[in-house]
């Protein structure tokens, strides 16, 4: 019997997506975002996407490109650049539906989806405007003697999750080698299908390192495709391989008018494969030497 081989390229992964889908994006802010896949989405006519994310320039680019129908988020930030200007502009224009939640509620929603329950109870959100502005959120009363009123955080079921990892094998096993795996594993469990990009495609035997097995939060049974994309998180960081490209992000953040945005897309996205894109960012040596952020 042939062994599992889930290898794909980024175009093939994005080819699995459909307009109107709910897509979870792993990573956090300006850290370990699957940006090669986001740029690939920008090249397509995909539209009306519902995005769930601990948001950074993934959200900003999709918003700027008019791909967003709805955003489920707790924040959007570029870390050292606290406010994400592309997101801000589109949010202020009201161009997409806003499902603004506490960060912990996002995680609970993903967990509920993963556990295949309709909701998980939590006090989080009570007494805040998260409930005011999300009238679809309901409360429940504890059936026990305490009678507590709790928010019934609904499952955030995803059609697809997209994540970027440091190493993966063709079977879909993966290492996240940065210090924080963020919530990628919950995105994967909450999704019907999960696609990974990886800095490096390795053999299963290469992952046979007992002390490192704790760096494998995503179970391969959730993984449907793996694409090798070196520097695939750029301009976000992928610790320990490279840091956040603050200069690149500032340039991106300044492309706010329609003309500037079109020029930015033409310069960095249109017709560019990963190698050509990295050249627009100063080349592989420059990207690989981006210092890791100090927080």
């Amino acid at each position: 019997m042939a062994d599992l081989n889930k290898t794909m390229n980024v175009a093939e992964i994005v080819g699995q997506l459909e307009s109107g889908m709910t897509i979870g994006v792993g990573g956090w802010g300006a850290r370990r975002k699957p940006m090669a896949l986001i740029r690939e989405i920008l090249k397509t006519d995909l539209t009306d996407l519902s995005i769930v994310a601990y948001g950074g320039c993934d959200v900003g680019m999709l918003a700027a490109a008019g791909k967003l129908r709805k955003l489920t988020f707790g924040f959007v930030s570029l870390d050292s650049i606290p406010l994400e200007k592309q997101f801000r502009q589109k949010r202020q224009q009201g161009t997409f539906e806003v499902n603004e939640l506490d960060e912990g509620m996002v995680q609970l929603g993903l967990k509920a989806a993963a556990m295949r329950v309709p909701f998980l109870p939590t006090p989080v959100g009570l007494a805040s405007d998260v409930l005011t502005h999300n009238p679809h959120l309901k409360t429940v009363t504890s059936p026990y003697d305490d009678g507590a009123e709790l928010v019934a955080m609904p499952a955030l079921r995803l059609d697809v999750a997209l994540c970027h990892v440091n190493k993966a094998d063709p079977r879909g096993n993966s290492w996240i080698y940065g210090p924080d795996p963020f919530f990628d594993e919950w995105f994967a469990r909450a999704a019907d299908k999960t696609y990974l990009t990886t800095e490096q495609l390795v053999t299963t035997a290469d992952l046979d390192v007992k002390s490192e097995a704790i760096r494998m939060p995503i179970d391969r049974c959730h993984v449907n495709g793996v694409a090798e994309v070196p520097m695939g998180a750029h301009p976000t960081s992928c610790a320990p391989d490279y840091g956040i490209d603050v200069k690149f992000l500032k340039n991106y953040s300044a492309a706010l008018s329609d003309e500037e945005w079109a020029a930015w897309v033409a310069d960095h996205v249109t017709g560019k494969d990963q190698a050509a894109y990295i050249e627009t960012a100063g080349g592989a040596d420059a990207v690989r030497s981006l210092p890791l952020p100090v927080f």
């Binding site: 948001g55 988020f73 707790g74 924040f75 959007v76 930030s77 606290p82 406010l83 997101f87 801000r88 949010r91 202020q92 224009q93 009201g94 806003v98 603004e100 939640l101 506490d102 960060e103 912990g104 509620m105 939590t122 006090p123 989080v124 959100g125 009570l126 007494a127 805040s128 405007d129 998260v130 502005h133």
Partner: peptide, 21 residues
């Protein structure tokens, strides 16, 4: 205004959960 704010900032982040816990 919430629908079309004068300034969009970060988002609620963890504030609702922090303050109730």
């Amino acid at each position: 205004d919430y629908a079309q704010p004068k300034a969009a900032l970060l988002g609620v982040r963890g504030f609702p959960g922090n303050t109730i816990n």
